[in-house]
Design a protein around this nucleic acid. Sequence first.
RNA 1: GGCGGCAUAGCCAAGUGGUAAGGCAGAAGUCUGCAAAACUUUCAUCUCCAGUUCAAAUCUGGAUGCCGCCUCCA
Length: 485
Amino acid sequence: MKHDFYLFNTAGRVKELFRAAHNEVGMYCCGPTVYNYAHIGNLRTYIFEDVLKRTLQALGYKVRHVVNITDVGHLTSDEDSGDDKMEKGAIREGKSVWDIAAFYTKRFQDDLKALNITDPTRWPKATAHIDQMISMISDLERKGFTYRTNDGIYFDTTRFPSYCDFAGLDPETLRAGERVEMGEKRAVTDFALWKFSPSDKKRQMEWESPWGVGFPGWHIECSAMSAEYLPLPIDIHCGGADHIRVHHTNEIAQSEAASGKKFVNYWVHGEFLVIDKGKMAKSGENFVTLEVLKKKGFSALSYRMFCYTAHYRNPLSFSWDSLSAAENALVNLRKAVPQQDSSEHVENDVIETILTPFFNAVCDDLNMPRAMAALWDILKNGSLSLMQKRVAAERADTILGLDLTQRAADAYTYSSDDEKRIVVYSLRELDTGVCDGIFEKVRLRRAARANKDFAGADRLRNELVNLGLTVKDLPDGTTEITFSS
RNA sequence: GGCGGCAUAGCCAAGUGGUAAGGCAGAAGUCUGCAAAACUUUCAUCUCCAGUUCAAAUCUGGAUGCCGCCUCCA
């Protein structure tokens, strides 16, 4: 499929034509710190990254995709000598930090699977790459980019003149010590590469290093692991918009200082999911997980659908009503995809033509709202054949990942042997007793209708409705019963 | 305090100069004993003010409101 693909590059703040630097596109996405469940705001970013990856693949690129797992403890800030999030989580749950990391890593990966997010090529853990981090810090030390303070080894940002370019910072206006103690740090922008373990207590995670026992700074892991698995410059590096200012600025500095090469060609950042006008945070009642969402009866893919209502670079307002709207839309969309009931041959060229507006939208910096509108247009277009619509939807779904060919409620189907059949659709397996009970009520209702006892017929239908069923009298006389949830 | 972003119908939102995508909800109609489903139709002048222009939601200036980053954070 030949399409020019445009991506908004945070470096430079403009939409650019994507050109791969390698045969296999290198894509690095900042992963989670596994000290707690991911909330749906976090998940929004991974959904957008998955769409980006699927798009590249649909355009014919091979993609080498790396997502890190931050399972090492970092302090609540560079200067804080107190507990870090991993250790806090461990204390909170009475487990070791290693158990905490393993548990939440698994939970995170389960969430991604439920959302149809495809697995990355590699999934490196920070704790398995301490050697690479130490080696990179040593390189930086050798090249004169570091200095030592009483609590760690720091990166000297004054030695890296272009430090402020990426985020458009003005060092003069940064407020030194406003929110975080400077300690012995020389410049506001300097950051820790290696932190020494506190002398008065034993950390659960700490390692030997040329500078003493301690643990790595937060930023170094992404630099070390991306260099380990991807050739520089990395084609695409993704993350949440909150990372632009500090994390990615620091990554660029240390990676380029250590390697002498350009670090990343395209920086792509996703905006936040907002709730009650603020961003979703891992503390407080704003914390909505996929688990919570499922408990309320929503499917994970409804959330994926919801994410397509807005562009990834704009904040998206979450509410249960709007999620519910997306779920209805997904159900309707699946209904609009014709069943495979014909052997009509569909030419690939025809499908590509049909899908042109869809791909134009996707390739314009992943404009999914427009892409979805294009898909609706296709499915409502009366001049296309059913098979053309179906094949087009299947093709679009390789990017959307919405299981569009799945029917809403056809997991289990039960039919009566009446002359005019009674068909029951359910997502769950039903006891024969339950099924027979439903059949019996329908037969009674049919009898009432035949006798023009419409009040009685409606009463019987209401009984079924109250059980959570919908009742449809089809033109051919069959009665269709669907469990609504 | 610095930097960045946003303000479009009941809700979620596209749209960066030529007269408002799409979805959800709602309304009307066809169909139905009534429903359900389906189909058809319908539903905004874009926070406010002042400019530029033949033409602005889209550009400029101002006002108001809101959010994010600057600390770990998707």
